[in-house]
Design a binder for these strands. Structure first.
Lengths: 221, 221
DNA sequence: TCGCTTCCGTACCGTACGTTACGGTTCGGC
DNA sequence: GCCGAACCGTAACGTACGGTACGGAAGCGA
């Protein structure tokens, strides 16, 4: 029962277990929340007994799958040396573009769907591993942790002006994501081409700089 | 998107049926998606046979419940006469405040949860009314339909400058909502007091005017 | 009073699915 | 070769829940 892999996740997984979780992830993307243990076992060519032995129950399998996907998204650290307006702009555009790509990906949509669906007013009985918290931690909050140092560096370089990095980040978040995520989660067909994402990233960055850019000199477009 | 915007579904409902839908709505808020037909029948003091006779099946009951809630949110039209910067600002702040109150309400969260959960890759076979489309239509798109005339009036009054009302609306949407909705849907405890909502509305409006205001300063795209 | 309609309460059915059990197979160690 | 562990495939069990059927009560017109 309690033998599930809940902590130190990516370390304690064998290759076989990773393959099983990959199969579960694929199934989750294809079929949404109503994926069954039988389907996972069949897709992964393993027995249900093994699934229960490894992950405890369906909830544990779901949690392990989400954590497994989260562990796969490793982040490249941003270099803060030689920061000028051009490099800051490029960094912000890169963050915006990456974030739009993430939230519009099938995997992210599927994971957010299942996490939202299970985040009801009824808490899990063990209450420990909440899928919503995991997704949030590896999504929005991870983005904030990565972006804030860039914002701080921009401020120290005299390129940005703000008093609250959290508020500045949330504004950037809103300018980038706008209504994209909720529309996608609600099933709206919203084709986001690479070109559209690039344009949105540029627009969001310009708007953010218009709001938080240091007023020393001509800026704007 | 589609028409069927203001179809008055509340017309064909008897008082008893409205009471039943209210009970279902309350149950939805309390228990999330896993509300059962038996629970609805017991809460509404009616028989399951009646539920099926009135709403067809569980999907029909869910759809009727969402539409019933949507029909209850009636909108006060905005007067566009005598528009100056102060009244425009007040209107925008009002929109922002109302929208934040909506998306942070228990009812909205519950409805969005169930709609997101059911908006998986598996489409309804008969393609009947999709909950996600209904929520979207009565949420984001209804807000756009209400706000765009205000934006247009502001532009004609020389207070705003934009070429694409849809883009301007989406920017306003992003500045107002930021990460609030996704965090709430994912179960993040995010206490939004009336004071905080008011402050956010003022901030969002201020930022929007900084980007799209027709002053002799920085102008948006 | 009778018959009709509507609806409540509840028992019932069928199925899907989470979970468990078990026989059979592979594989490493001795 | 033999043993035990791990694992696959599948059958079986228990239960929850969507959906249906049925008896009975209340209202209503004649």
């Amino acid at each position: 029962m309690q033998a599930s892999v809940d902590i130190d996740t990516s370390e304690a997984l064998t290759e076989r277990q990773k393959a099983v979780l990959d199969a579960a992830l694929r199934l989750l993307v294809e079929e949404g929340d109503q994926l069954t243990m039988t389907a996972v076992a069949r897709r992964a060519s393993c027995s249900k007994e093994t699934l229960y032995k490894w992950f405890g129950d369906r909830d544990g399998l779901l949690t392990a799958t989400v954590q497994w996907q989260a562990s796969k998204v490793r982040v490249v650290p941003v270099d803060r040396k030689g920061l000028d307006l051009a490099s800051l702009t490029a960094s912000l555009e890169r963050f915006a573009s990456d974030w739009l790509k993430v939230i519009s990906s099938d995997t992210s949509i599927a994971l957010n769907r299942v996490a939202v669906g299970r985040a009801g007013p009824i808490r899990r009985k063990d209450g420990k591993d909440d899928l919503g918290a995991i997704v949030l931690e590896n999504g929005r909050f991870a983005l904030a942790r990565r972006l804030k140092p860039v914002l701080e560096a921009g401020r120290q370089a005299g390129l940005l002006e703000f008093s609250d990095a959290e508020a500045a980040f949330r504004t950037f978040f809103g300018l980038v994501a706008r209504d994209v995520q909720i529309r996608l989660l609600l099933g709206d067909r919203l084709e986001l081409t690479d070109a559209a994402i690039g344009g949105d990233a540029v627009r969001a960055t310009h708007q953010f700089l218009a709001l938080y850019g240091a007023k020393t000199g001509p800026q704007g477009l």
